[in-house]
Design a protein around this nucleic acid. Sequence first.
DNA 1: GCCAACGTTGGC
DNA 2: GCCAACGTTGGC
Length: 139
Amino acid sequence: MQYWLFKSETSTWSWDQQVAKGDAGEEWDGVRNYQARNFMRQMKVGDQGFFYHSQKERAIVGIVEVIAESHPDSTTDDARWDCVDIKAIKPVKTPVTLDEIKADPRLSEMVLVRNSRLSVQPVTADEWRIICEMAGVSV
DNA sequence: GCCAACGTTGGC
DNA sequence: GCCAACGTTGGC
């Protein structure tokens, strides 16, 4: 069981849109970055992830689960790009902002802090637990 | 809206 | 295979 973080601009794909898809979920498509793609290729059904809104909001707003392992991205014919499908599990009680994450020394090694441009990234079990606590979500 | 950081592309 | 030029992302 691995943990991940999915980043999206609200104007491109928001948490509300993800929730609206329900249990059917949706492709996490449009990723055109090798590192991000490689992480998606490692994902297994049942892995969980944070849903993070970048740009204006800059906060973790929900929990998602991987429901289909990597397959070709339907938004391109380019065989290089794969993606997974995810569904919304539940919103967080309290959004955890980037400022709060940066302020916590235990989270200083997070990819979100160290490489802010990577849109799909791994989260360690410790980081997962700490952020769930901050978010008021039971693990 | 700006710009730093980073990734990708393509000429050589 | 190097690296300059360019494009994109995302925090500020």
